[in-house]
């Protein structure tokens, strides 16, 4: 090696190789950034013209120019709220159990490994699970509730992981202080740990739920419909959501429908952006607030 490097022509070659690699690295990184820019530009160019008020207040239609996303938008909002109502208590509950109550034994390990594996199960499999359990066995039919239950199961592993990370940010001293004063385990969690951990748990939970908003495949399997003539008015109404509507418009051969799809995508991305901004806002506020 020493011999090699000390020869000037070899040293020059090494230097050139270094330069070339730096350039390649920078170009590749640039490629990733460019892809994102191209993707966003393409969608904005395709869909921006369709973003008029009627687009937000109309039902889907056979004519592309009259079709709108009202039921999809309302369906997405209902589905999100319902999923959150089911998944947040259960997810945070499971996280509290694993972090605050469970002993470090084989059982806790099994539960943990299980959650890691659930997070890797393809989403379309959750669709099959929902189809068989909620739609067929529990006879919810192709309803909002069946969709929300399915999405709750899908979101659970992510919510549990996020909530556990939130709970871990609470210093041990707070728990000891509360326990030393005679509070029970649950009182400690309820009045000391959860209030302190809440903002950071919420941040993680919102990020997890933003994945629910963009998820398509399990809802197609569970049976979100595309043509819908009235807004869902109960838990057992049929429903559609934004990504399903976008999927349907994208697969139409007519170009006009693809413009609708692009406009729908803009709305979907705006929604996701809002949720992420909310999560970041909460995170920042929390970082400022904690005095310890």
């Amino acid at each position: 090696m020493i011999q090699v490097v000390s020869r000037p022509e070899w040293r020059a070659r090494e230097y050139r190789r270094e330069q070339i690699f730096q350039l390649v690295g920078a170009l590749i990184v640039l490629f990733a950034l460019t892809t994102l820019v191209v993707l966003l530009t393409k969608i904005l160019l395709d869909g921006f013209a369709r973003l008029n008020p009627e687009f937000f207040t109309s039902f889907p239609s056979r004519r592309a120019s009259q079709a709108g996303i009202l039921p999809a938008l309302v369906g997405s909002a209902y589905l999100l709220l319902l999923t959150a109502a089911i998944a947040i208590p259960i997810g945070v509950g499971a996280a509290v159990y694993l972090e605050e109550f469970a002993k470090r034994n084989w059982f806790a390990r099994v539960v943990e490994i299980n959650i890691t594996n659930l997070a890797g199960v393809p989403s379309v499999i959750y669709g099959l699970l929902g189809l068989q359990v909620f739609v067929r066995t529990l006879q919810m039919e192709r309803s909002l509730l069946a969709g929300a239950c399915t999405m709750a199961l899908l979101a659970l592993p992510v919510i549990i992981t996020a909530a556990r990370e939130g709970l871990r940010t609470v210093p041990k001293s707070l728990r000891y202080g509360s326990l030393a004063l005679g509070a029970t385990q649950w009182q400690t969690v309820r009045y000391t740990v959860l209030p302190v951990a809440m903002p950071s748990i919420l941040t993680g939970v919102i990020l997890a739920l933003s994945r629910v908003v963009g998820e398509t495949a399990p809802l197609l399997v569970v049976g979100a419909v595309v043509y819908i003539s009235k807004l869902p008015d109960s838990l057992f109404s049929s429903f559609t959501v934004l990504p399903v509507q976008i999927y349907n418009w994208t697969t139409r051969p007519q170009h006009a429908f693809q413009e609708n799809a692009a406009a729908g995508i803009i709305v979907l991305l705006a929604l996701l952006l809002t949720m992420n901004a909310l999560a970041i806002y909460l995170r920042n506020r929390y970082q400022k607030r904690l005095p310890i």
Binding site: G93, A94, Y97, Y126, L128
Partner: peptide, 30 residues
């Protein structure tokens, strides 16, 4: 308080077990 403690503990355990149940349900129906 002691009863509440037990009830809450049982509820939280059930939340954690739901994940295991989900795995079983997936394998079972498939």
């Amino acid at each position: 308080v002691r009863i509440e403690e037990r009830v809450v503990r049982a509820f939280l355990l059930m939340c954690a077990l739901l994940g295991v149940l989900t795995t079983f349900a997936i394998v079972f129906i498939l």
